[in-house]
Design a protein around this nucleic acid. Sequence first.
DNA 1: CGGTATCCGAACCGATACTG
DNA 2: CAGTATCGGTTCGGATACCG
Lengths: 132, 132
Amino acid sequence: MHTNGDHVCFCPIKGVIDVISKKWALLIVNAIGNEGPLRFNKIMDALHSISPKTLSDTLKDLVAEGLLKRTSFAEIPPRVEYSLTKDGEDFRHAIIPLLEWAASRNNHCGRKCVPIYRSLSAHRIKRTERKF
Amino acid sequence: MHTNGDHVCFCPIKGVIDVISKKWALLIVNAIGNEGPLRFNKIMDALHSISPKTLSDTLKDLVAEGLLKRTSFAEIPPRVEYSLTKDGEDFRHAIIPLLEWAASRNNHCGRKCVPIYRSLSAHRIKRTERKF
DNA sequence: CGGTATCCGAACCGATACTG
DNA sequence: CAGTATCGGTTCGGATACCG
């Protein structure tokens, strides 16, 4: 086992599992990928029903992983934006086939789109990113 | 699949997150994808340090999701094999870019493969499946 | 061989209230 | 606006022992 400060890591695939296994991580990356830099409360809206604590926790993880960048502007009222890093962009493109696959299983196990989700960009993907 | 203008809905993404968020699911699918049908104890070896309970739980989930097929042979001693279904094969190919991405981050956060893991096929991708 | 049964601690995640 | 503090419920996953 490889240790690095307070991190304990096995190998990269374990790292990626830690990232993607978070309930909201893929949705956040996808939402920012679709819409560009987003503010905290915009992400709250985009994800629909995530709590501020959980969003805060997940954003910190994603920033720590180097997938998101947090930019705060010295304004009143304060403004903070989250955007994808280069690594985050790469990651986002790496998960697109997985999202496509998920979409193609629409009818599996009764998992269908419900209208409230259909309107949320976090649950969709820009057609310009698709190969078909 | 539900479409809406230039987006496609990814409500099923919730389903896929349930699958991939399991700690060992990607490794199991990858191992069987690399090696073909595997028996219970072979998967135990391939994953190195998973407990029988956790493996059993995860296999059941993957079978229920339609990604794996469980085949038991009426022999003494008993023999059971787990193989990828068509859906499982599709899934496996859908995650390859993600695994490639993970592998390319080798040096991020000090996450490197250590020899014991490097020798486990669950942590590798068959070169014939790779595009380069 | 291919699992279960049991127990347990840790991690995850939501609700709510509050703050610089 | 962009979070933090607190609490508590649920799920996850590991250790170990045992079973058909």
